[in-house]
Write a protein that binds this DNA or RNA. Structure first.
Lengths: 335, 335
DNA sequence: ATATGTAGCTAAAAAGATTTAGCTTTATAA
DNA sequence: TTATAAAGCTAAATCTTTTTAGCTACATAT
């Protein structure tokens, strides 16, 4: 029971491979294949369960109906949910998605891009690392259709879908201020990537706007590679200040999760002792004690927009760059 | 700057494509290509950054150094972590992984299997749906190398990697019993898949072993498609019993998460009013109030074993079926 | 009667690698 | 000296599909 090819169908019907191919690619009309033969071919192809050989087709056509998706880490719900929504959207147009994790590393991202291009994905969706500007420029030069998600490079014109990070932080701070909190700290990654930069800038600006004082030690930076330890340290340092903050903002879900865990371990009462808001909703924030107020990103819309933008690029072959910024949503819980 | 092929290298060195191909496939020795030429070819290939055309190679060889992974839902940490570990293990042997979500649906699983096989993945790792026995038999007949993970079909001999579900439940019940709990309930999916079946059977047996009475209403079944609502309902029903349970076991992380959320919403004090243990560790269980005691599956080992088993199959071409059952680990927290 | 057009189909090339079968050339044996 | 073997390489087939260029047969126009 080995695979049937065009040849098999052609032989059984006494026509040429060409005819069969034309019919099955819906080019019968424009090539004046008779209706009669068309129907026969379609019927037999169906019966024999014909599916075109992916390689032969790829080799000849150079396209694959596949898009590559490179994200930071598939085991982070933020990324995995985006991946899921992109898959769904792509499937609507009969595209498949190959997902790969970069671990937020420059080299791994570059390597994955090359691997995926070798596999002849027709386009890419990428959450780039801050060091990936070279390869992004290279992609532009190669005219590979691609869309950046979550982060972008202000100096490079690209397709991009992300959120209004500044407004998100601002709404959180306004919310805290309205609740009477004035001493607000931020635990964040280093401001290397655009999304983080915007969050930190948003933090400074929002404090200013509300006439709140920015204490130097209230911004704590942690690293990607030792996030958990750094977050613990950052919290301990904030708590040990002679003038400790009354509220903490976490810049991402991962920081927020480690942060909550450590605050609980330190028996800090939330929100009585310290109030907490995290960027990114995460399933665990609903369950935690107390449920955490979050700045939620509209993941489904981000993913859908990114997919649509990419598919449009690939189809029209027109190169144009669009930047889509989505609003975020403050979900007020108990923290 | 278009891609270099064998031809280009051959031309530049004044040798044939064949020679270049043989060298780059490490078949120089057995084909008596001189060391001199071998080195030249390798050097130039490196310089020109040659990578073989994936399609041409696939078309000719019929293999792709790619494995397909079909899981329930990539956005569930249980699956996404498995996916991640499988990727890592496969990468060690230069294999790539294509991941796809079945949504635990029969048709989608079958469709994905066909799509992945069309793309000529060299093997498959699958968490099958309970209705997938046909396609599993078909895969066997086609002699496609594959490994089942998390669930299997007792009546079909296959490669399988999973955990000792019965022992996991048993250890949880023993733990509860030692803490003085006697009225223990279970919220689970329908016993359609092997893992769930084993958990339910494990529940009954462990109760018997500890001489605990099994109340009929203490086993509540929920469905895959309306898990959240069903869990809420199940909990409400358990709470409303004239003789309500003192402890609840959740059969999976998803059930456990919804369960905890609802217990908190109902202001049930944990563990004072009701003690809780869930199968599967989940990041949220560490953060929740209180942190949830869980039966943890050794995800990394499961994934690694599955990958190794598959790679071994693909290499040796020998058909043999191995069933690997891993021990689970009770992580005692505060619930 | 010849040219032009068109309907309906097909032969053959092309894509880029792998692999088979075999061709030179030189060394060794008879 | 001639036959045999071995070393070192290559031409051509092959994988399956898409696509180009064009063939055949019949109808219509000149």
């Amino acid at each position: 029971m080995k695979k049937v090819g065009l040849e098999e169908i052609a032989k059984q019907l006494g026509v040429s491979k060409t005819t069969v191919s034309l019919v099955l690619n819906n080019k019968a009309k424009e090539n004046r294949i008779s209706d009669e033969i068309m129907k026969k071919v379609k019927k037999l192809a169906e019966e024999l369960n014909y599916t075109p050989n992916h390689f032969a087709r790829g080799l000849r056509k150079g396209t694959t109906n596949t898009v590559g998706l490179i994200i930071g880490d598939i085991s982070n719900p933020f990324f995995s949910r985006i991946a899921r929504y992109i898959e769904d959207e792509a499937a609507k147009e009969d595209y498949h998605v190959i997902v790969a994790s970069s671990d937020e590393k420059k080299e791994k991202t570059e390597q994955l891009i090359h691997i995926l291009l070798d596999k002849k994905v027709d386009g890419l969706i990428i959450t780039p690392n801050y060091q990936n500007s070279e390869i992004v420029l290279w992609l532009k030069k190669q005219e590979v259709p691609f869309v950046l998600v979550d982060r972008y490079f202000p100096k490079i014109k690209t397709n991009y879908v992300g959120v209004d990070n500044g407004a998100g932080i601002s709404s959180a701070i306004t919310h805290l201020y309205e609740q009477g909190y004035e001493k607000i700290a931020l635990i964040t990654y280093h401001p290397l990537m655009s999304n983080i930069k915007e969050r930190i800038n948003g933090f400074r600006e929002a404090l200013k706007k509300n006439n709140l004082r920015l204490h130097n030690q209230y911004i704590q930076e942690v690293s990607y590679t030792s996030t958990e330890d750094d977050v613990k340290l950052a919290i301990d340092q904030l708590l040990a200040l002679t003038n400790p903050p009354r509220a903490i903002l976490f810049a991402t879900n991962k920081i927020g999760l480690y942060g909550m865990e450590h605050l609980n371990a330190r028996n800090v009462r939330i929100p009585q002792d310290i109030s907490v808001i995290s960027f990114d909703d995460d399933p665990a924030f609903r369950l935690s004690y107390p449920p955490v107020t979050v700045i939620e990103q509209p993941l489904k819309e981000i993913a859908t927009d990114a997919a649509r933008l990419l598919l449009e690029q690939m189809k029209t072959k027109k190169i144009k760059y669009e930047e889509i910024v989505k609003p975020v949503n403050l979900i007020i819980r108990k923290s």
